[in-house]
Nucleic acid binder design. Structure first.
Lengths: 143, 143, 143, 143
DNA sequence: GTGGTCTAGACCACC
DNA sequence: GTGGTCTAGACCACC
């Protein structure tokens, strides 16, 4: 028996399942036309109630990412364009949201890119210095 | 009578209120020590029940972003370091999450940056000017 | 139908609820991992509105004493160390406050101890036995 | 100008004022018959609104601890028995409450006395050891 | 006017 | 059935 998938508490599990499966489809880990494991098997792998897995798959079917064939089971859509378009649209909307949030915090686009590029290295150093300064100021205050 | 704030359905309103107010604090629109509007006024502005606003503000008090002075009202924390550190921590964790998600979709860091650049080129200039102005105002206040 | 819990007027009910439940956790009446009654059941037992009970439980969740499992209910934290440490910290801070107050009234430590001894002599034996039983039960659980 | 008295936020200020003045009377710092400073002076000393000081003094007058003489001002009661009795009653009720709370946490009277006597010295050592053990256990768990 | 508490009652997602 | 959110509306202490 494998480890169950990891879910954060706080968000609905079926949404987290969708995110996992959607990523596998959009990234190409699941190819168009691939057969999905059965609901039972997927539920067992994920360590969730079959009803929960069922709900996630139904939603994904509504999105056009998977389809059901009578008795044979569920398959990844064979429409590669749908997958490609959704991948791009997802990237765009996540980027919009992310950039919007950081703009609201007062970061410019240049600063955002710098954070992504530097993997925070430079920011970290500056922050350490700044924290030290704050700490020293605080000391004076408290004494 | 102004327009009520816009909330998307699906996320709890009090969480969306927190995001709005938190952004205003982290971005410097609210300065340390500023007095907040009263619960009733904020609730009226946002178009929500006073209890809902109360809940949002209580949570923010738990986060250390605001404090209450009995009968006088609520104020933005005067601890500028807390605000500064939270702004950086928020930017970093949002960036981590965003980059992680797009990586999972198969995008490289370079591709992510190209998406961000392409999307936001035009608005950049205007925002840079506006941020500079805010920054200069903030500096005068803090020194 | 049982008697509703007794609350003194003057202190908020939700704070008194927290004190009751906290005592049950710290004293070991509720063991780590135990399932709590549902919000509605607890509210009914205590004779308060479900929202009031909800508020008390949310605060206790913030303190790390209980946690919520979506749709399954609420449980006592399984982190026995947190409970143990809080029990000791609570005892110490209450003692500090108590001794400080009586010192301010002019009582020496010896006089304070004499008051405690004189007041509680008779009940001591019964409580010792009962505490011993609880302690033994708790030991078996924890090991 | 002296430092204003220190009040914790969270409890009504007038109640905290009563506690301060009451302690001074019960402990004998103020003697029976002593003249109190004027409301204005006391309010200024405490750094509070005169209305707040007025409310505190009115309540204490209701308790029989001070009395007002027409134009001369306020005085500490000359009834030494009242003071003595209240001092004892206060000590008793505070002790009852304190011992009750610690009993509810599972402490025996002997343990309570040991905590008061030892000023926690022995407890501290034991706790340090226990925390170390918990820490080591936690390490194993996390790896 | 300020924050804070409490109730009654409705409605929701999740499992 | 479980927790959680939200509203309407009343009431309170403090200043």
């Amino acid at each position: 028996m494998r480890m169950a998938w990891k879910f954060d508490q706080g968000n609905p599990i079926y949404l987290q399942i969708i995110q996992v499966l959607e990523s596998k489809i959009l990234s190409g880990e699941y190819k168009p036309g691939d057969k999905l494991e059965s609901v039972r098997d997927l539920a067992s792998l994920a360590g969730v109630n079959p009803n929960t897995m069922q709900k996630a798959l139904s939603e994904m079917e509504g999105m056009g990412l998977i389809y059901t064939q009578r008795t044979a089971g569920r398959f990844i859509t064979e429409d590669a364009a749908t997958i490609k378009n959704l991948r791009l649209a997802t990237a765009q909307s996540k980027t919009d949201e992310f950039v919007g949030e950081l703009n609201r915090l007062g970061y410019t686009t240049d600063e955002i890119i710098r954070i992504i590029k530097g993997e925070y290295k430079k920011e970290e150093a500056a922050r350490a210095v700044s924290n030290l300064e704050d700490y020293l100021k605080g000391e004076q205050h408290e004494q």
